[in-house]
Amino acid sequence: MQVLQVQLTVEPDPAEVGRARRWARSRLAKSGVAPEEPLVETLVLIISELVTNAVVHTGCPAVLRMLFSVGSSGPSRGTVRVEVADASTRPPLPRCAASDEMGGRGLELVDGLADRWGWQPEGAGKRIWCEVDRAAPALGGRGTDGRVVRVTG
């Protein structure tokens, strides 16, 4: 099994968020992920949130990467990894936004949609990553014990 990695440099401009979403859809389609697969919308939302955070909170260019397993017949049902690396050393800080606030929910959304996420130092900056397991349905929420619960549509 091989891992396919694609990446896009994102400038510190809010217009780049839409470009990153379009790029992600295009790369997923070219990699054999069907547009109607729920995974596509999940990944595009995660990418939108992570790129928005990089653009809004760092003022630095960033690199968006998608990595997924590819077998001889195309993408496998394995894990898709999304990474956003930037030159800011400031760690991502999840917060609880008040109900009347316009922002502040990005990492909460990533936490709810991704199977795993985290961050680590990278060079002079950091890399925020998340993973979505393709075999699991992409809809769900958290159970009373805090674990991610998946539901089928």
Rank of each mutant, 00 (worst) to 15 (best):
M1S: 11
Q2S: 14
V6F: 08
V6G: 05
L8F: 01
V10K: 06
D13C: 00
D13W: 09
E16Y: 04
E16N: 06
V17M: 05
V17P: 00
R19V: 13
R19K: 15
A20D: 05
A20L: 04
R22P: 01
R22N: 13
W23Q: 07
W23C: 03
A24N: 04
A24K: 01
R25V: 11
R25G: 14
S26Y: 15
R27F: 07
R27Q: 15
A29T: 14
A29Y: 11
K30P: 01
G32P: 10
V33D: 07
E36H: 12
P38M: 02
V40A: 05
E41G: 08
T42N: 15
V44D: 04
L45Y: 01
L45F: 06
L45D: 10
L45H: 12
L45S: 12
L45W: 08
I46P: 01
S48N: 13
E49R: 02
V51W: 01
N53R: 05
A54I: 01
V55I: 04
V56H: 10
T58V: 02
G59E: 09
C60L: 11
C60N: 10
V63L: 07
L64R: 00
R65H: 07
R65G: 00
L67N: 11
L67S: 15
F68H: 15
G71Y: 01
G71H: 03
P75T: 03
S76M: 10
R77D: 11
G78Y: 06
T79I: 06
T79F: 01
R81Y: 03
E83I: 08
E83A: 09
V84M: 03
D86I: 05
A87K: 03
A87T: 03
S88T: 09
T89G: 14
T89M: 13
R90K: 13
R90M: 12
R90G: 02
L93Q: 15
P94H: 05
P94T: 07
R95V: 12
A98C: 02
A98S: 12
S99I: 14
G104P: 06
R105Q: 12
R105C: 10
E108V: 15
E108Y: 09
V110D: 00
D111F: 08
L113C: 07
R116G: 06
G118F: 05
W119M: 05
W119F: 14
Q120F: 04
Q120G: 07
Q120W: 06
E122L: 14
R127F: 01
R127E: 12
W129R: 10
V132R: 13
P137L: 09
P137W: 08
P137S: 09
A138F: 07
L139Q: 12
L139K: 06
G140C: 03
G141E: 03
G141T: 02
R142D: 01
G143R: 13
T144I: 04
D145Y: 09
R147E: 12
V149C: 06
V151S: 02
T152K: 11
G153W: 12
